[in-house]
Simulated assay, not measured.
Amino acid sequence: MDGSITSFSSFDSKKQYNTIERAYVHVKVNRARWVPVPDGQSASQLVTGSYSELNNSLDLWTCPRGKHDEGAPRAVCTVQVSGDVTELKFVDPQTFLASTGKGDLLLFKVKEEQLEEIQKWDTTQMLCDADSFTGFDVADGVVALATTDGQIVCFPYADSSNAPSNMIKPGKDGVKAVSFIRHHEIALGNLRGQISIWDLRENIFAPAITFPYNADSAIGVTRLSPFPLQKHILVASGCDGTIATWDLRNVTNSQTIYAAHSKLVSDLRFHDMRPGNLFTCSFAGDVWHWNNFDELLGASTSTSQSFSVGAQKPNVLCLLPEKKFPVNSIDVCGDTLVSACDNDLLVFIKSLKLK
């Protein structure tokens, strides 16, 4: 199918019966991330960031891990922050970064059952005019921050000088998604439906590549991620509920669009150890498990192959059906997924059937 845009407008979303546990946490959670553990172990701690509360916070939770995994998660540490938590990502097994809607970037370390603040930056230290951050990505010690005024500020977060190493100004079109492809290459997606690739080694006043999420209509981009096994394959999600892929070596003739969720895709996550498994969630309240995503890309988990549109249709398992309240974020560790729902719930889905 080289040279064409392939769109799968319908496919089966099979129900999957797993162990599902719900915990009412009394706050709206925007981001939920497992504290990383070695492969084969079960995660026992979770960090969440709230939003739309009078007093927003970062919270550390312990999750029971006994013979029967009985009992609800327990909040063991709460740190109040200024503004909504807009993004949260671990940079190593004990350290994470969190951004806020008030323009703070926070570096924390998890020490047993405590959260210890290591460093705090704000927009004035970044030498930018924005008043808040909409999100960020991090790779090889460098963080790329998306600001409300459309700038991307890159700087080494371990550098005490706080001086930006690069500053990108793609325009004032509402950058919604930012993702490192490689340590020197960043993908940006905005609410007008434009995706741009920037090479930090070259002229940062113009992107290396620019292309639309959907050539037929302006569909805003919500999330971006390179496929972990083949970084030249870019995976994105849209405000219309679709999932799309490109081969960045030939974006004109390599797009595939999957008509998936019925509303905006709020998060997408590849399994860290088994990246052929993709998980997505949406404002429709549903969570999906794509368990043959590597096959859709024509990829192999053992060797690097060239990109090609797979002959198979997506094999999608519905972990949570649509409901009234959106799912804001998901994370997966081992065979357990956590979803942060807009009705003050954390939902844990256990015994995932991973490929």
Rank of each mutant, 00 (worst) to 15 (best):
H261R: 02
A244T: 14
H68G: 06
P38A: 07
S266Y: 08
F307N: 00
P207G: 03
T301A: 11
T301P: 01
R192V: 14
A340L: 04
S304R: 08
E117S: 10
T303K: 05
G241Q: 01
V142P: 00
G238F: 05
P314Q: 03
S161D: 03
L229S: 03
A236T: 09
V29L: 09
T280E: 01
T62N: 07
D294G: 08
V138F: 07
L115W: 04
S254Y: 11
R249C: 11
S196L: 10
V91C: 04
K28M: 13
Q125H: 14
G238S: 03
K111F: 04
S9F: 14
D331I: 05
A139G: 01
E87P: 00
E185G: 02
N190F: 04
A98I: 12
S52E: 13
G193K: 07
T48W: 09
S217C: 09
D247C: 07
P326D: 10
I204V: 15
L46C: 05
D59F: 02
S304N: 06
V316A: 04
G101I: 02
R192D: 10
S304P: 01
I233V: 15
Q16C: 15
S7P: 02
V47F: 11
M1G: 07
P156G: 01
D173V: 08
S57M: 03
L191V: 13
N30C: 13
Y51R: 15
D131G: 12
Y258L: 08
Q41D: 12
I5F: 09
A98V: 12
T124D: 15
E295V: 11
F211Q: 04
W290M: 02
S165F: 06
F307A: 00
D331V: 06
S262E: 13
L278G: 01
S217W: 06
A177G: 09
F325L: 12
P164F: 08
L97N: 04
Y17I: 15
A23P: 01
Q230C: 09
D335E: 13
K355E: 05
N162Q: 14
V91Q: 01
S10H: 13
D59G: 05
D159I: 08
A32P: 09
H289K: 06
P170M: 12
E87W: 12
S132Q: 12
W34V: 09
